Simulated assay, not measured.
Amino acid sequence: MFVIEALFLLVNYGVVAAIVVVIALMLARLVLNYADPNPFSRPVIWLRSVTDPLVAPVRRALLGFGLGPNVAPLIVILLAILLGWLALQLASTVLNTAAGIVFCLRRGAPVALVGYLVYGALALYSLLIFIRIIFSWGMVGYSNRLMRFLVNATEPLLLPLRRMVPPLGMFDISPIVAFLIIWLFQAAVAGTLLRGWPLNFIG
């Protein structure tokens, strides 16, 4: 259990450090946009080469929405925080499931072991649906490998729900129904297979 907690702390510190680095780079990029320095100086060239892979896709998306590209560094900061949070949620789900499995193996509880596996799988599936929603809002296309995986993994549940639940105007509410169904199954697992057992070990 100590190893799992240490691993989560390591992931947590790594994600937070990555977010802080992105924020620092984007703030420097914002200063660069408004300071109008010599574009051929070595620091400016280095900063642009480091930040362009993050800023360029966001700038293209903003132009597609008819928005000014100057706010792209701020959007990158918000996206970095959101993606960092999603990464921590994913790590917490996987490591909590692993901790539950280790806990059950030590206690010799096969029923609870099945419960932790099912509960963790449901939590992971719910998170995949949420990430797909975020990516679709960000206009990430099916040609993206990660988006393709998310669609292929979540469509078996969302497609039948989409056929049964009519959209509200232009809004597809099938993911909300999917979240409710998954939450109901998680509550059922917690109330039967995991009654009296802890649900969260870390995070």
Results as ranks from 00 to 15, higher is better:
E5V: 14
A6H: 12
A6M: 10
V11Q: 13
V11F: 01
V20I: 12
M26W: 05
R29W: 07
V31H: 15
A35F: 13
N38D: 15
N38F: 09
P43T: 02
V44K: 08
S49P: 00
V55D: 04
R60G: 10
L63Y: 06
F65Q: 06
G66N: 04
N70I: 15
A72V: 01
A72G: 12
L79N: 05
L79P: 04
L79A: 12
A80E: 09
I81S: 04
L82G: 15
L82I: 14
L83W: 14
L95G: 09
A98I: 00
A99K: 09
A99W: 09
V102L: 10
C104L: 05
L105W: 01
V111H: 06
A112L: 04
V114G: 09
L124H: 11
L124T: 09
S126V: 02
L127D: 02
L128R: 11
I129A: 02
R132Y: 08
I134E: 10
F135A: 13
W137Y: 13
G138P: 09
M139F: 15
V140L: 08
G141P: 01
S143V: 08
L146Q: 13
L146A: 13
R148S: 10
F149C: 00
F149N: 03
L150V: 08
L150K: 07
V151P: 04
N152A: 15
A153D: 01
T154F: 09
T154M: 10
E155P: 09
E155N: 03
L158Q: 05
L159R: 11
R162M: 08
R163F: 11
P166T: 00
P167C: 03
F171V: 14
F171K: 04
I173Q: 04
I173P: 03
S174I: 00
S174F: 02
I176E: 13
A178K: 06
I181P: 11
W183G: 11
L184Y: 11
A188Q: 04
A190N: 05
G191P: 12
T192N: 02
T192K: 02
T192R: 02
R195K: 08
R195E: 04
L199D: 01
G203Y: 08
